[in-house]
């Protein structure tokens, strides 16, 4: 599920993950400063929830614990640099990222904090292409897309990239963009979806790349309140925090 690994951040913070997902997210963490930073604040938050439960433990617990630690060897310190917890880069620097990571990079962690009115989680992927190596991730995305597309209030609108269209469901709080004859973006660029609010502000959605056949699917989970349109631009790999090029498609709600 490597393309969706960012999406595990919240679930990881509350331990709502399977052992496999936990391992996957922890493997991802050192390479992603956004997730590392965000995770820190989320864990401080869940610590508040834990503290609120505080009760005086039975006195016997102390004896048991100290008896046990008396015969428990301690692990030595972990090797390796702690450089993973590097300070936050400025959001504007986000457009320049190494190519290897760019693919998987979405800008939502900071975005959702900045924009109280649109809580956006991008779950981007490309079905049928080589980008999603993991079959399970494909299946999960396909399943999610199907559920949105089959929602009673789902409606479909032309997106303007070949015959690509957007499917919007308020009930599912989801937007799906998909197409099967989408032209390729310029070299070094990929498409990015934007959420346009009534006040004209634009919020970064997922990036997506059609495969060699022109197929793509991407999905966005969000509340629709105040959203007036969706737009697509071409952005450098990894996407941008704000559009850096002309909109090539706009769908007004």
């Amino acid at each position: 599920m490597s393309d969706n690994v960012h999406g595990l951040l919240g679930a990881y913070a509350v331990d709502a993950v399977t052992p496999a997902e936990r391992a996957e997210f922890e493997a991802h963490l050192p390479a992603c400063e956004e997730c590392s930073l965000e995770l820190g604040s989320l864990l401080e938050t869940t610590a508040v929830l834990a503290d609120a439960e505080s009760t005086a433990p039975p006195a016997a617990l102390r004896a048991r614990v100290f008896e046990e630690i008396g015969r428990t060897a301690q692990l030595p310190p972990a090797d390796g640099p702690a450089a993973d917890a590097a300070p936050a880069p400025e959001p504007v620097a986000a457009a320049v990222v190494p190519i290897e990571r760019a693919r998987r990079r979405h800008l939502w962690p900071r975005l959702a904090v900045a924009a109280a009115s649109v809580a956006v989680l991008a779950v981007a992927g490309v079905i049928g292409g080589g980008l999603v190596a993991d079959r399970n991730a494909q299946l999960a995305l396909e399943q999610d897309v199907m559920m949105v597309a089959s929602a009673p209030d789902a409606h479909s609108m032309d997106l303007g990239l070949g015959s690509a269209h957007l499917v919007v469901s308020e009930k599912m709080a989801s937007v799906v963009a998909m197409g099967d004859d989408c032209p390729s973006p310029d070299d070094g660029m990929e498409y990015q979806l934007w959420v346009v609010m009534a006040d004209g502000s634009k919020h970064a959605g997922p990036t997506f790349m059609p495969d060699s056949d022109g197929s793509f699917v991407t999905m966005l989970d969000m509340e629709m309140n105040g959203v007036v349109a969706f737009a697509v631009t071409e952005e450098p790999h990894g996407g941008s925090a704000q559009p850096t090029s002309e909109e090539i498609a706009v769908v007004e709600l």
Binding site: G10, A112, L121, Q143, D144, M219
Partner: peptide, 17 residues
């Protein structure tokens, strides 16, 4: 949808934070 579930968990913790 799974994506909605993940987003909801995350949004909840972020809102508390």
């Amino acid at each position: 949808p799974l994506g909605t579930a993940k987003a909801r968990i995350r949004d909840a913790v972020i809102r508390l934070r």
